[in-house]
Design a protein around this nucleic acid. Structure first.
Lengths: 204, 204
DNA sequence: CGAAAAATGGACCAGCAAGTCCAGACTGGC
DNA sequence: GCCAGTCTGGACTTGCTGGTCCATTTTTCG
């Protein structure tokens, strides 16, 4: 992924990606030019093309990967340890907090749409992110099952997929409306569904 | 909304919007120029600006409204009559069918991102769509409750919000990965949750 | 019919932003 | 210290695209 012979080169490349991510968050991909990125990162045009020979698209893809990595990182350590109801709620709070802080803007969504579904790389990044995310959720549900907190008959993968969809949709809606109600509803209802599926009453 | 004195004018305007929607679906907003739209709709540059004086953004906004209207229309008549489990399942199938047919592309999402959150109009369109969509779902849940099919203690609005988020996220994921698994999982789990909340067993 | 308003065609303009290029500075191994 | 490879600077080119303008045709309506 990081192709740069010298340490200095790698540092510059990283600086470009991080700076570009900042600018893109602020202005959106539609209104961000290479000159904006150049200005922000204190680099020159030739450097941009030196590290991303294929041009803007390649740079955007690198930023997309950068952002994708952050998505799961920002949910840690909660996402990796979903073995009790308390931990699930801590994760829930972390997700809400993360996206409320991020505000009305979706780095990945924008980048993905710009680079387009045509791009082989863009789709791969998103697909892989979703795969990992869902894997974490499924692991969490299995941990609950191991601890006897949910019924063993529960379809783990389907439930994880539904929960992931809920979070994703909640975030999407929040981007559009500025309101986190749906995200919270999806998370709370999803967790409640897990509880209910255990045969316990829905109420806490 | 439709400002055109003569019938011919209105027809041309509509032709532009519909044609633009087609082109945008095929090429994505990022790679669509006014010339593409002009070519597809058999119009001239001056017509585009005659009917959309504010330029491209205004046209994109009109297309967004056009697409938003279709979203709910395509779910009818099922969405308007969610008063039994059968009707819910018919709706579920209609949604899946609609989005699988649409394929890996989100007219609204793209347009929204292009016009940007800065635009006052774009956000209004999406917000209103979500509001109406959720209202329909909530009505459906209330109908179930009236018919004694779900527990009266259920938080209708929150459940509707969660379901909407699930559908939205399922669609989003499908756009990115080309796989409708998550959409189906969200729908099925959401409906199952309604059933479970009624105190009935989760299984059909 | 005739004039005013609306609709249409398409040439033209201007700015912008991606991408090119080459000259020069640094750096790291020998 | 020297040479090859790497990194950096920034001016320049070029194509595209949104937007303007005006001439011409068509429609409406009294």
């Amino acid at each position: 992924m990081t192709d740069a012979p010298t340490a200095k080169g790698r540092a510059t490349r990283a600086r470009i990606v991080e700076g570009a991510a900042e600018v893109l968050r602020e202005q959106g991909v539609a209104h961000t030019t290479l000159d904006d990125i150049r200005g922000r990162t204190g680099t020159s045009k030739s450097q941009l093309f030196h590290y991303f020979p294929a041009g803007k698209d390649e740079l955007l893809l690198a930023v997309a990967q950068f952002e994708a990595d952050r998505v799961l990182e920002d949910q840690q350590p909660h996402l990796g340890r979903l073995d009790s109801w308390e931990s699930w709620h801590r994760w829930r709070d972390a997700v809400v907090e993360r996206y409320e802080r991020q505000g009305d803007h979706c780095p990945l969504g924008t980048l993905f749409l710009q680079v387009g579904r045509s791009s082989p790389g863009a789709r791969a990044i998103v697909t892989e992110l979703m795969r990992q995310w869902q894997r974490h959720l499924a692991s969490g549900i299995r941990a609950l099952r191991t601890n006897g907190l949910v019924a063993s008959a529960l379809d783990v993968d389907r439930t994880a997929a539904a929960l992931l969809a809920g979070v994703q949709g909640g975030v999407t809606i929040m981007m559009s409306t500025g309101d986190s109600t749906h995200l919270k509803a999806a998370l709370d209802t999803g967790i409640e569904h897990l509880r209910t599926a255990a045969g316990e009453p829905a109420r806490t």
